[in-house]
Amino acid sequence: MKTDGRDIDPSLGMLLGEGSGQQVKRDDERMEAVLPLPWDKTPTVSETDPTYYDRPLLKEPVWKIDIPIYYFLGGAAGAALALGAAVQLAGDGELQEFGKRCHWVGIVGSSIGGALLVHDLGRPMRFLNMLRVFRPTSPMNVGAWILSGAAPLAITAGLFSNRQGLLGHVGSAAGYGAGLFGLGLAGYTGVLVGNTSIPLYQETRRLMPVLFLASATASAASILDILFEDRRSSKITFIFGTAGRLAELGCGFAVENVAGRVPQVAKPLHSGVSGALWRTATALTAASLVISLIPGHSRSRRKWAGVLGALGSLALRFAVHYAGTASARDPRASFRQQRAKMIA
């Protein structure tokens, strides 16, 4: 072997490893990211409340804003598909058109949502790797399966459910399937956030799926209210939406309480960007609920209730997203949560 005279094989120094091509952030950018605050006192270890120079314990989620938008769209689509299946099951001829609209909200929501999900991957071309395995401990994996089932079923239902003959049967079967998958689509994202190390999500892991499904119900009714109008279907969206908004508000309250068992864990719900979004979401949903409950029939009022309700649900998803980031940044939230469990 040819060497450079020092008995060293130069090929050993060649950067051929998989890790070698890595580009890292510039120093200043990186330091901004890793340091939570410039400290203004001599750092020291507190005996009662120690941290490692207040540096985060956990990594923040790497997800971009695609994800909260996906929570919203996927949720609304899923709940709309469930409502569409309910119309097929319990409705009559008069509601055929409404059922179809539900399917179309489901189609649009799950398609755009799916595109956002793929866009957020570090390696979008490898999306299909999600379907290599089936793994219930990974809600992300189950969700990929649900989405891959819900979107095609919704499209089939939307195209064929009101036809005659064999195609009609296929379409209506697809509609029922889409309804089941839709429930999964609206709910799995709550399981997904609950199944993380982030203290806020971990503490509220039983509530997050309920909150997400409630918010999905409210947003599906809101979107249907904004887009379409007829007396019969507005009765349905009124009941569906009111239940969703009430559940959304109640669940939000429960999340605050459960997280509040360790005050540091609930902090992102009360302060910062996530706190402001959380309060905005509550206010918008409450306003939408109040407007929708005013007696008498008015098209414009229903529309306004829908707009406020949809914005409320969207704000809620963003609040959950940013609260997770804030919670991951706070080492004390994890430490205190875990210490509280150790005493209990």
């Binding site: 469930a82 409502l83 309910a86 429930l183 609206a186 709550g190 499904l213 119900t217 009941i239 569906f240």
Partner: peptide, 13 residues
């Protein structure tokens, strides 16, 4: 929660 949503959907229809 999904059962609840299904029940509300059927009920509203």
């Amino acid at each position: 929660a999904a059962l609840g949503v299904a029940a509300v959907a059927l009920g509203s229809v």
